[in-house]
Design a protein around this nucleic acid. Structure first.
Lengths: 337, 337
DNA sequence: ATAATGTACTTAATCGATTTAGTAATGTTC
DNA sequence: GAACATTACTAAATCGATTAAGTACATTAT
């Protein structure tokens, strides 16, 4: 391994001079700086992030904490899109990405300890359970954090606009003449609460009365669960004309169930998803859904975090709500006229 | 930050003793060791991976290099499943994961330099282009590597069994009476070559003559491309009875195209995918496909890499072929009888 | 001519841990 | 009781970089 010591010997200057020359310090002559840089190139010098981190107390490394209910993580498309965009933006800003997990080999650790252990400058947190004490501990620590889809007091966060997203969907469906709308919701997280509240509020504003049996609990990203709930809806004495699914993937469970009952979409039943994953627009019929701005969310999360890291004095907690976009698709029948 | 120095002061012993006590060295008395550990706990001591890395020359950090053609990366389900399993196994073995990319902020870097810069103990490489000089450089460097779906000389690798996978699909389709089989393949990587060769060989073994216009180039994970090729196939004077798609996602493009022609699956046209992503088994009809053992591949990659890192003397390059599994699905009609 | 200023370096401490070599204080053996 | 071994520690070097403080030497001001 070539170190600054090797360069200093080759150039006949001190290690301090080499370090300064490579970092463009002012008190090094043009001449010397050039000679040092040339030698570094010739010897194939590579800086050592570890040594730099130790001395400077800055790792230029961002932790990413993705935990879903099952302990799995990044395989859901929504998560991987966010991860991808966090990574891209972080790299643009000169930061690397390391995953933060519980436990590392035999060493028991919580998230905070792991982030400290790796000297992360900050952490982006996405979780299915923000009540988890380990997450709370990290989010309340001195480590800069940005949370996705949840806000802690006095901390930065990125929210997808669940309220407006759900409102847009309800208004769209209503505009196409639907009055009996069923709503399958995921586990009761804060996101779910927002969507459900927005659903009810918008329905009320539009003068729609939604019977309680039209609002049913399902599970995110679980086609089976929404298949079961779809069946339950179909067995009601009065069926809805449109079903809202917790997310695009869940809709697929509903789709098979509808098919099994000989119902076709959207002629016999209209459906709506949520998330707007690429798949939803490749399916035929194209799914009517609301695309969360996953790329923007990841990008903004990285941006906000780096801002907090690099301007600790002027920084103030900030919540950015990222707008999404209604994808009309072809799964909501037009009942007008 | 609590360091071993703080503990040594609190305990009235030297830093060396603290270090040894915490690492369970033999030449520390039970008594002292216990006192040190208790003090460490009381003060909330956390080891510093950076300092340890610098001194020991081992980071317990594994680089993951995922590059697809578009420069994007992890959003394809196959990749994210592998990433997830690499991560899980690496963590089990006591290693963290850092992404390796080209360039970091303003610093231009290639993969090898990045991995060195972060002191990665080893790198798992998945790429759409193993000809890329930057990848070749890394794979030929002194850094331990394991490649996925490609083998470099004298280096470890994990291969999904494309040969047997394709053979299984052809034989299955053949057993259901199909004789006119079309094959849409992805970009000409080594994986594609293996699948194509296996397709041709198995067809030959079964006495099937495949006209050249039945074998067409498409693009992986691109429904549009396979939609176009599907149309081209349908316009042939003699249509195939079954179409092989490059992967499950590509099939979706074919699906819409078939629908547009009023053909239903599998009555009017049989289809086969590749990958066996969860989605394929949620669709109705369930897609006939071959599931690559993505979890096993990731797990074995991490295992092999850590082996190489921890036993550099006894280690020998190794290639593990991970078997997959035919998922029969419902998209291949039975033409027999 | 002397002091003040500026330039281009070097010295040495430091970040937090690990580890080799060394040292006292015991215990053991003949 | 002298020689040797064992136990339980400590001192100091080290990993690769950054940086505050110091030092020559040349230049400018008074």
């Amino acid at each position: 391994m070539v170190t600054i010591t090797d360069i200093s010997k080759a150039c006949g200057v001190s290690r301090a001079t080499v370090s300064k020359a490579l970092n463009g310090a002012a008190d090094i002559s043009q001449e010397t700086a050039e000679r040092v840089r040339e030698t570094a190139r010739r010897l194939g010098y590579l800086p050592n992030a570890t040594a730099r981190t130790l001395k400077m107390g800055r790792s230029y490394n961002i932790g990413v904490l993705f935990s879903d209910a099952t302990g799995g993580g990044i395989s859901h498309e929504y998560f991987s899109m966010i991860l991808e965009s966090v990574k891209a933006e972080a790299e643009r800003l000169g930061y690397d990405i390391t995953f933060i997990s519980r436990d590392l080999g035999k060493r028991p650790m919580d998230y905070y300890e792991h982030a400290k252990y790796r000297s992360c400058d900050g952490v982006v947190i996405a979780s299915a359970d923000f009540q988890d004490p380990a997450i709370v501990r990290l989010a309340h620590s001195e480590i800069p954090t940005v949370t996705l889809d949840y806000s802690f007091d006095s901390r930065s966060s990125i929210l997808s606009d669940n309220v407006r997203g759900m409102e847009a969907l309800v208004r769209y469906v209503h505009s196409r003449g639907h009055r009996k709308i069923a709503f399958l919701h995921g586990e009761m997280t804060s996101v779910t609460q927002k969507r459900l509240a927005s659903f009810k509020k918008t329905c009320a504003q539009l003068g729609l009365e939604i019977p309680p049996e039209f609002i049913r609990p399902a599970v995110y990203h679980d086609p089976r669960s929404s298949g079961l709930q779809t069946r339950a809806l179909l067995e009601l004495p009065e069926r809805p004309s449109c079903i809202f699914y917790p997310d695009d993937l869940s809709f697929l469970g509903g789709m098979s169930e509808l098919e099994r009952h000989g119902l076709s979409i959207p002629q016999d039943m209209s459906v709506v998803g949520y998330d707007g994953i690429p798949l939803s627009q490749v399916l035929r019929p194209r799914l009517t859904t609301y695309r969360q701005g996953a790329e923007s969310m990841g990008r903004e999360a990285a941006r906000l975090l780096v801002e907090q890291i690099e301007q600790p004095d002027t920084w103030l907690p900030q919540t950015i709500t990222v707008a999404g976009e209604l994808l009309p698709g072809d799964t909501v029948a037009d009942l007008n006229g």
